[in-house]
Amino acid sequence: MNGTRLNLVIGGWFIGLVVGGALLSFFWLPYDPNRLDFTAQFARPSLEHLFGTDHFGRDLFSRVLLGARGTLYVGVIAVGIALSLGCVLGAVAGYVGGVFDEVIMRLVDVLYAFPAILMALLLAAVYSPGTLTAMIAIGLATVPIFARIMRASVLTLKERDYVEASRALGAGHGRVLVVSILPGALSPIVVQASLSLAIAVLAEAALSFLGLGTPPDVPSWGNMLREAQGFMTLSPYPAVVPGIAIMLTVLGWSLLGDGLRDWLDPITRR
């Protein structure tokens, strides 16, 4: 198996595992993830508690499964915001060009100066910190990369002969953009979406860890690490398990992104 296939397969397995875990959490969890059990505090991993328990005796496996749901939810919506906003801005800037292009791209550039955590600090001060502000912060911080990619694609594609032909046949600007240009720009966007999901998962975990993301009463991987920090001398498992979950998810999205890039590129595909 060559590197491209390997990336796709391993990345696919990791993400499949996370998606599977998230789906499973809707139907079945071994324990109530918020049930306190003071007879089972800091249990080591065993058949009874697959990943052990935390300082309240809550089952870590159940909490990790539920955390998978939150991670996907925040990541997918954040990247969805970035993708739709970024692509529209980039496409219009590239297609219309001129002063319009300059103004849009200057505004997008400003977002570069506000990475997700900084944006979240700003939003958390204005609205109360929470899942929604985290999603918006991550989404806005990711807009520039999509805008740039889209603009670059549109700039090269709009000079192509078949686009010219479509215009000559009387297609309007909207039709030219959507039917002739968009499909050609799709593959770099898909690749970037996967890579951005990796970054979004990291950002969401960091924000939850800081108390700027998922509220404390909902188990998320970042929250679990935040809570575990005070009890690391008593048991390492609550501080280790959620981190592994984050790592595998991030790795999954980035491998998938790399694999897709090579697979969609006819030169490296050979």
């Binding site: 990796a198 990291l202 975990a205 960091a206 860890f209 690490l225 575990a228 920090q229 690391m232 501080a239 959620p242 981190g243 984050i246 790592m247 595998l248 991030v250 790795l251 980035s254």
Partner: peptide, 9 residues
């Protein structure tokens, strides 16, 4: 893929 704050922990 390792979150820096987890590596810190």
């Amino acid at each position: 893929a390792i979150p820096s704050f987890w590596l810190g922990l």
